[in-house]
């Protein structure tokens, strides 16, 4: 039998929040990409996409971080990000951020064109949905604002979740589904009470579905909503969609403390 041609070389942009809070999401991302036939590369010196700087108005810092990411991912076919907002930062905002920089504008556009949010990459680019996992829960799905509005991601995670055995999806009502969770990056530290109120209201919409697990693709939203659930002792656990798709759901949910100390 002939060896099949090597799959595309995919660089994983882990995101700072996944690195710090939830490594399982990155491990799940790697596993899914490998299942889909990709060769995976994780640049070891990656840090932050600069979204925080960009949205805080620190444009020069954002530009510096953008150049760093562009350099680190120069040699891969695709960049895949387990986050809608970080993917949108690279895909939508890098080109505008560096548009006036003759040395970097083309490189920013080139990177933007081959950067994808994870579920969009698997379905839209690879047309892959051979998910091999089981999750015996009723779940609901939170579409993050960046993923939905900047990248048009709505159907992609649902196509993949439909292939998970044992999983039942109950959607949030159409209008509340479009509402922000209240995270907003530095918004959550600048106006913590407002952020908490929005998260509380969003959680009510989540609980109204009767789901026992809330899934999403942006850890910022998920951390915010998990904290809201814990404040209220609400009967819902929170996980990143990649964990469920990759079958990495044995560990604690987002915001829960693992029984044993980490490695």
């Amino acid at each position: 039998m002939n060896e099949s041609p090597p799959g595309p070389l995919v660089g994983v942009f882990v995101t700072c929040l996944v690195d710090l809070v939830r490594p399982t999401v990155a491990l799940a991302t790697v596993r899914l990409l490998e299942q889909a036939g990709c060769r995976v590369f994780v640049p070891g010196r990656q840090t932050c996409c600069g979204q925080g700087a960009f949205n805080a108005g620190a444009r020069a810092d954002a530009q510096a971080l953008a150049r760093q990411v562009i350099t680190q991912f120069a040699d891969v076919d695709h960049v895949v990000v387990p986050s809608g907002s970080c993917a949108a930062m690279i895909r939508v905002h890098y080109p505008e951020l560096l548009a006036d920089d003759p040395e970097w504008a083309d490189r920013a556009r080139a990177l933007a064109a081959r950067t994808w949010e994870l579920t969009a990459f698997l379905t839209d680019v690879l047309n892959w949905d051979a998910v091999d996992s089981r999750f015996d829960e009723t779940v609901t799905y939170h579409d993050s604002c960046s993923g939905r509005r900047e990248l048009g991601i709505v159907d992609q995670p649902r196509r993949l979740l439909a292939r998970v055995e044992g999983l039942t999806l109950r959607e949030i009502a159409p209008e509340p589904a479009q509402e922000c969770c209240g995270f907003g990056g530095t918004f959550s530290t600048t106006f913590p009470e407002v952020s908490q109120r929005l998260a509380h209201d969003k959680l009510a919409d989540v609980l109204a579905t009767g789901a026992t697990t809330l899934l999403g693709a942006d850890l910022g939203c998920l951390v915010t909503l998990a904290a809201a659930a814990q404040r209220q002792n609400a009967p819902v656990r929170v996980r990143h969609v990649a964990e469920v798709l990759a079958g990495l759901t044995d560990g604690p949910a987002v915001g829960e403390i693992s029984p044993a100390p980490g490695p």
């Binding site: 990155a26 209240g182 530290t189 980490g262």
Partner: peptide
């Protein structure tokens, strides 16, 4: 702050 995230363990 609104939320103190709870890391799983060591960084990725």
């Amino acid at each position: 702050p609104a939320v103190l995230p709870v890391p799983e363990g060591d960084t990725f």
